[in-house]
Design a binder for these strands. Structure first.
Lengths: 153, 153
DNA sequence: TTTTTATCAGTATTTATTACTGAACAAAGT
DNA sequence: ACTTTGTTCAGTAATAAATACTGATAAAAA
């Protein structure tokens, strides 16, 4: 029911780089006609290999040019009650990503803001109001060398 | 030449969540006809607000279920010669993201691999062969709480 | 008021997607 | 060797969407 071949992989590889390519052109690259390519894409969507199609926007143009990684340690007594914390994190749109990590800290957040003063505002008025947060460590991004959404398939 | 209004923002907000929405439906949500929405999207593409359209794939289904953040410190003498390092980083497809950071380490990499043994292979045979790398620290991701490509606009 | 500019609606055209049908081929059983 | 079954594909027709074009409306500037 649920296995993919090398043609599927090729299709995925193209779509994760540019999902606006039309099926005819994609079919040409794969030396096929539109029908099999169309049906394969639909199957890959149905089976969950393709989760969604999105537009990637320019952070800087939209005044979100500052990236900060924020490591978070929960209070000792709260280690097992992560669910409230998770709900609060998901609700904050500045937090683009949140990972439960191994090591010195419990969570790592990736945060996008306009500048340093908005980051200060975020930490002071939003992040710090989340209960159970023990302490945090901010790692500021000076430059973005590489940023891809494409998997190495 | 280069300014956007609230309708543009609404369009961007929708497209970064689902770029496969058709213009007619999007126009309906914004109480407009297709033409202005179409023209606005084209302008947003031309002006670089929309960088690209991509399909987001399921990591786990494609056997890339392990995420590791790897902090890298360059050798002391190499602090100013980052360019070769950058070229090597960009060439490795397992490295999805790479940031130049402030703090204890020089760079932070986000790496996607299948499992621990492929990570070991990656560090041993690929990452460590890059010259000028001093030492590294791996932060393993146990769970992904939130992962969005959508900006808070 | 007149001109200019920007934004929009409506429509026609082009292009892409989707649905449908049947052919070709391979694997498994008779 | 010959069906049978299932899968993948090509070709074509139908549908739906994107794009191009024209002109109307309204707001801002002359």
């Amino acid at each position: 029911m649920d296995n993919i071949d090398s043609i599927d992989l090729q299709i995925l590889k193209h779509l994760q780089e540019n999902s606006n390519i039309n099926i005819k052109e994609l079919a040409g690259k794969l030396f096929l006609t539109v029908t099999p390519v169309y049906e394969r894409i639909k199957r890959l969507e149905r089976d969950g290999y393709i989760m969604k199609y999105v537009a990637l926007l320019d952070k800087k143009k939209l005044n979100l040019g500052m990236t900060v990684f924020c490591n978070v340690r929960l209070k000792e007594h709260a280690k097992n009650v992560g669910s409230n914390f998770v709900k609060d994190i998901v609700a904050l749109p500045e937090i683009i990503e949140c990972y439960n990590i191994a090591g010195d800290y419990d969570f790592m957040l990736k945060i996008l803001v306009e500048d340093m003063s908005s980051y200060q505002d975020f930490v002071m008025n939003k992040l710090s109001t989340i209960e159970n947060i023990g302490n945090t460590q901010s790692v500021f991004v000076m430059g973005e060398i590489k940023h891809s959404t494409a998997l190495a398939i």
